[in-house]
Amino acid sequence: MFKNTNFKVIVLSMTLFILLFALTAQAQDLQLTIATGGTGGPYHTIATGLSEIWNSNIDGINVSVASTGASVINNRMVNENKAELAFAMSDVCYYGKEGLLMFEGQPLKNVRGFASAHTNFVQVITTKGSGIKTIADLKGKRVGVGAPGSGTELNARRILAARGMDYDDLGKADFLSYAESCEQLSNRNIDAAFLTGGLPIASITELATTQDIDIVTISEETVNKMRESFPVYVSTAIPAGTYKGVNRDVKTLGLKNYMLVNKDLDKDVVYDLVSVMFNNLDKLYGYHNAAKMITLEGALEGMTLDLHPGVEKFYKEKGLLE
């Protein structure tokens, strides 16, 4: 009886020691946060894959994923070191660097470029029978315009402005996340919604399983008007069959996404992060179809931000920089 009790005490002590050691080791890891977007969007899904790849291949770090309002908020978070890494739309990043629009007079001096990522497509979703075919048809309608502080919301305002409209011309402008927009479309509480992201956006895919959806055209004329102030915008198309029931190519606006990093994150850590990412693209591609647009060859495509020294070192080794 006495020996059995001693054995239990020893086992319990060893278990507590192992648990304490594991918790201590984890506390000593460098804690990194990557800011993303809504949980139904490509930013969050791709970042989840990246965090798992990084945590499995780099000793001494622990990367966690934060769901946020996306691009505008993400730029601010990286600038204020509330997140070390982030995804954001290229136009928002440009405005942050130059201190324009929502960053008027306050350029973000601590944000650096990590890599160009996938292309974003502005996807204005409605339901068949709504009568909404073009941006002009949104006049007087109830429209989801994206989450507050998101790149989607910025896109919505700028697209409407290119057609001589603003939120006052809508029946109602609702500030909604991806998931909220699709839920409100399903419940017929809104008539259309702006969602900007890679293809496909999971929330739209899910919506299309229960509703007959349609995608509103954004004309090349509208895109060209927007290019006058920011040439990164391109006229592109959402391919037929991307979503159930939409069997035609739909013209829309496209723009690059960037991965961002805080300028003060250690050079060697950033070098490890970018190296491991590009050495594990085959794994990353399994997380989301849009991730397949992330390539080493395109790592600096359309990049307007100053690069972090850690990624500069990597890109020089790969011959992308002199």
Rank of each mutant, 00 (worst) to 15 (best):
F314C: 09
V216D: 14
V63L: 10
Y95R: 14
Q106I: 06
T15Y: 02
V223D: 09
G245W: 07
T36W: 11
T196P: 10
I190F: 13
A156H: 10
A117I: 04
T15D: 00
N279Y: 06
E220I: 12
T119L: 13
F121R: 10
S229R: 00
D272L: 10
A237V: 13
S235H: 15
D191W: 07
G99I: 05
A117M: 12
A25M: 02
W54G: 04
P200K: 10
I18K: 06
T48K: 15
A83V: 09
K141H: 12
K172L: 13
A290S: 12
P148Q: 00
D212E: 15
N55R: 06
G60V: 02
A193C: 13
D59L: 05
D212I: 03
F7S: 06
A156E: 10
E228T: 06
T252Q: 12
N110P: 03
A240H: 11
F230E: 15
G149I: 06
M89L: 08
S130M: 09
N75G: 02
Y233N: 14
S56W: 05
N187T: 12
T217P: 00
S186T: 08
V78R: 03
N257T: 07
V232F: 05
A156N: 09
V145D: 15
M89T: 11
A25T: 04
G41V: 14
R112F: 01
A83N: 12
G286Q: 09
A22K: 12
D174M: 08
A47G: 01
T236Q: 01
Q123L: 06
M14N: 06
L296F: 02
K128A: 08
V311P: 00
V11W: 11
G40C: 09
G146H: 11
E180R: 13
A240C: 05
P239I: 08
D191K: 07
V261C: 01
Q28K: 07
M303W: 01
L85D: 03
V72P: 12
V124M: 15
M303C: 02
G40M: 11
T119Y: 13
I135E: 03
L101I: 07
K267P: 05
Y258T: 02
A161I: 06
R76Q: 15
L273S: 04
S203K: 15
S56Y: 03
K139Y: 04
K3V: 00
H308R: 11
M277P: 09
Y271L: 09
I201D: 10
T217M: 10
V9S: 03
T242L: 08
A240I: 08
I125H: 12
L160R: 02
E206M: 14
M1I: 05
I10Y: 07
A291T: 10
E180T: 05
A237N: 11
F7V: 10
I73W: 04
A291W: 09
V311L: 04
K109G: 00
L138D: 12
T134L: 01
I18P: 01
A86N: 09
E220S: 15
L273V: 10
M226Q: 04
N55D: 05
K256A: 05
P42M: 13
H118K: 13
P231R: 03
T119M: 15
F2C: 00
G298K: 14
Y285S: 04
